[in-house]
Design a protein around this nucleic acid. Structure first.
Length: 484
RNA sequence: GCAGGUGUAGUGUAGUCUGGUCUAGCACGGGAGCCUUCCAAGCUUCCGACCCGGGUCCAAAUCCCGGCACCUGCACCA
């Protein structure tokens, strides 16, 4: 998507020094878009009673020893001399009929020295072994354990369980949210923001009483596309999917619904969202069930949100490792439902599904006002006769009400509309000659390009709902536009 | 990580095969100005690139080697 770079959504990082694969920058426009997604995320979970936390990305080793990440992430990999494949050592051991484990590099090298290890795929001879770590290690003093960069933000929540529960005054369910960077040392990052080594995630851990569980249902009338691992695609509400046993965990069903509604608010169309259940074999080490929200990005279905039933795995692991009980009132260990949003991937999905080319070849990002980088742009028809002064004045007034307002006076009016179309600004307010006479301006709606005329006092007089400037006129406009 | 392909201004490209006429052309974009009373108009002017490093050669955007990045396939993606 060349528009992504040209218009400042995102671009490869460090290109000044030749580039570095697996890292991307968000540009001026993309930063605002991401910002607005995070606002939507926050708002959505505050409504559910969520609390927020912000913990370090640099994490001491023992946290991941406890969580199981160290074990699952640091694979001993062996290389085959014939087919050149890298593979985990356990499959090679099995193939070689060696009935023991090999967990250290030294041990693996001595096995290779004996010449007994063969490749699980082609039977070729194994020639080398190395540690493949999916986590970035950060060295510190040589007598100290290294730090690791977190591969998920979740552990920052689990290790704070007691403090958080106290903050929540002991109540379950407790919904804890955290967003921030995560890191994975991908072997071959590719496809722009889809597989990065450093990426942005927004995660939620819902702690539930294992007996009571989650007690609210999602609405019946919101119908989702589900792809259970039984293989039969179905369209149904999250509620009835739970009742029919397709989604055994009620909390899972509910947060699948919440996720769906967030994605819809981002402008991803109904037919571009589906929820796919993991097969048993692809479940993460901590999960007993998982559903991915997938969206269409450049004609492929891509995981953009992972919703996992982590059970009591994490609290038990940390409890065992530390010797500290991690329980709620009554000595119970809560179970956890985790929706984890890949913010970069969601950004890609949003851009991909919003992108539209008009018949005249002009490009439009049909982003909804809920997440567009700018909600409205102020444009003087001409930079003369005082029109620009009026426009600047109006700009200042609107900025008092909402921060996501753009101002542009450069080039012809058509060119400026086109610029705003490309970055997804849903509405443009134009100050013209009639403004001088009766203090009215036109509002142009992006998708229909139709306009209505309203009084400036009506624009600025409304109590502004958060991020939803001009709601009255705009909804009226959208209606009349869609009739056209 | 392996194999193949690609790499020229912010974007898209011409030039590369057949080294010199390239102090690198064009379009879009962006800036300044003129003009213009609503959808990328026009005019003037400016900005801006041969991915990096070696080598061959009188001479390299062009040929060779190495690196880096991107694309496609394979592998990987807890």
């Amino acid at each position: 998507m060349e528009i992504a770079k040209r218009r400042g959504f995102f671009w490869p990082s460090f290109s000044f020094y030749g580039g570095e694969s697996g890292f991307y920058d968000f540009g001026p426009v993309g930063t605002l878009l991401k910002d607005r997604f995070l606002m939507l995320f926050k708002r959505s979970y505050l409504r559910e009673g969520g609390i927020f936390i912000d913990t370090p990305t640099v994490t001491p080793k023992r946290v991941f020893q406890a969580s199981g990440h160290l074990e699952k992430f640091e694979d001993l990999a062996v290389k085959c001399s014939r087919c050149g494949r890298y593979d985990r050592i356990d499959s090679s051991l099995k193939k070689s009929s060696i009935a023991r484990e090999s967990t250290t590099l030294e041990d693996a090298i001595s096995l290779i020295g004996e010449g007994k290890l063969i490749c699980a795929y082609c039977g070729g001879k194994i020639v080398s072994a190395e540690m493949m770590s999916q986590m970035f290690r950060v060295e510190r003093g040589k007598d100290n354990d290294p730090y690791y960069l977190r591969p998920e933000t979740a552990q920052g929540i689990f290790v704070n369980f007691k403090l958080l529960l106290n903050q929540n005054r002991g109540k379950l369910p407790m919904i804890v949210c955290q967003y921030g960077k995560g890191y994975r040392n991908e072997i071959s990052p590719r496809q722009a923001l889809l597989r990065q080594r450093e990426f942005f995630m927004a995660e939620v851990e819902v702690f539930l009483d294992p007996e009571a569980g989650w007690t609210r249902d999602s609405p019946e009338d919101i119908v989702l596309t589900l792809l259970p691992n039984s293989g039969n695609k179905l369209r149904t509400s999250a509620k009835s999917a739970h009742e029919s046993g397709v989604i055994p965990n009620r909390g899972m069903a509910y947060f699948i619904y919440i996720t769906y509604s967030i994605l819809r608010k981002c402008g991803i169309p109904e037919e571009g969202i589906r929820f796919r259940q993991h097969r048993k074999s692809e479940l993460a080490h901590y999960a007993r069930d998982a559903w991915d929200a997938e969206a269409v990005i450049d004609d492929d279905w891509v995981e953009i949100v992972g919703i996992a039933d982590r059970g009591d795995y994490d609290l038990r692991k940390h409890s065992d490792f530390s010797g500290e009980p991690l329980t709620a009132e009554g000595g119970i260990v809560p179970v956890v439902v985790e929706p984890a949003y890949g913010v970069d991937r969601i950004t890609m999905a949003v851009l991909s599904s919003s992108y539209y080319v008009r018949e005249n070849g002009f490009k439009v990002m049909r982003l909804p006002p809920e997440i567009s980088p700018y909600i409205v742009a102020i444009l003087p028809l001409q930079i003369r006769d005082g029109l620009d002064a009026i426009a600047r004045d109006l700009f200042a007034k609107l900025m008092d009400l909402n921060d996501y307002v753009a101002y542009d006076e450069s080039g012809s009016i058509g060119r400026r509309y086109a610029r705003q179309d490309e970055i997804g600004t849903p509405y443009c307010i134009t100050v013209d000659y009639q403004t001088k006479e009766d203090s009215t301006v036109t509002i142009r709606e992006r998708d229909s390009t139709s306009q209505i005329r309203v009084k400036i006092s009506d624009l600025t007089g409304y109590p502004i709902l958060q991020n939803a400037i001009l709601m009255k006129e705009l909804s009226a406009l959208s209606l009349s536009a869609s009739k056209k």
